[in-house]
Design a protein around this nucleic acid. Sequence first.
DNA 1: CAAAATGACGACACGTCGTGTCATGACATT
DNA 2: AATGTCATGACACGACGTGTCGTCATTTTG
Lengths: 196, 196
Amino acid sequence: MGRWKPGARERLERAALELFVEVGFAETTVPHITARAGLTTRTFFRHFADKREVLFARDEEIPALIARLMADAPASFGPMLVIAQGLETVAATRFEGQLAYLRTRRGIIEADEGLRERELRKLSVLAEAIRQGFRDRGLDELSAVLAAQLAVTVFTVTLSRWLDQNGERPLSELVHETLRALGSITADPAEQPHLA
Amino acid sequence: MGRWKPGARERLERAALELFVEVGFAETTVPHITARAGLTTRTFFRHFADKREVLFARDEEIPALIARLMADAPASFGPMLVIAQGLETVAATRFEGQLAYLRTRRGIIEADEGLRERELRKLSVLAEAIRQGFRDRGLDELSAVLAAQLAVTVFTVTLSRWLDQNGERPLSELVHETLRALGSITADPAEQPHLA
DNA sequence: CAAAATGACGACACGTCGTGTCATGACATT
DNA sequence: AATGTCATGACACGACGTGTCGTCATTTTG
């Protein structure tokens, strides 16, 4: 056999997640993780840029997936339809069946300021990918930025509600519920009321 | 006079901003900042939770300001109108006249991953305050979350465009431009097209 | 007026984070 | 068999952020 046991990265991720649940994220040190995984501290940082990244490494390829999805959507689809359809596809392929993991992960992230920051940064990267997707679909810059932010908002709100309800209601139903509520809000005129 | 020169916090902030511009955020160390301010490292962390916080301390009271603004808005105003009016007020009182500072600050933040993360976290806190404001105005939870995210999106997009154009166009004009674009996007139906 | 409480800061120690650098040994290539 | 590549170990190090205690001026209190 080799000099080292294989699957170093996987062992690191598993050890880290276990410790985050057992003793909390902040209380878990990198040496603690690597000790459990049978590796050294230096090796940890070769696989993950920092301690937080363990919880986000899995989502690395999502922006690329989104880009493909948006490029494949019919050219006749407007922004909201692209969002609705794209979100349902992502939900079906990446969330369904991951309920337990996603709830555990959310619990860890919500309990730590630094993790919340990193999560928001990842969503920002996602938004940038979506923005570029809309640009490629011909939208002007302002509309593309807004549509991308809308997409991320619908995404996070819907996912959050799905987890809240323990996955009891189907994701597609929640997506449309969110989109309907969004429509109601923006249907409200932003100009001064004439009766004022 | 006292044992120490007054205005320790102000001196720290000024020294930090100067150094961020001169040598970059990551390259600036806290001892470097405190040396220029004539203080010790420990004192820095008594005034700012961490190095990044220097760039965000000024915005500390914005969520409270927003809460007041939303409570004072006429009950007849719908969400979009509250957003439009509130954003114009905040813009007029906190951004006008700060163009140079805000552009410098943006440059520093955009150049550093960690600062981007912190900025997003601050916007998240802002969104939470706005969400609560909408709840207090009687909106249901889903609508309040969505409206709050919309408000933050309109806020950041508009401010970004204002800075891009060096403040040449009035903020109120840009606010309405953003809101019009948002309306165009959401007017697009999210349901399957009937002709499909 | 004197004594005690308060509050800002200095000084010091410490653990963790994250990186740079070099050595090592397994595997693949030729 | 020689060589290159790559993952890891081993070690050092600067920076970050915190705990703790002492100091001294200001404020409060009796």
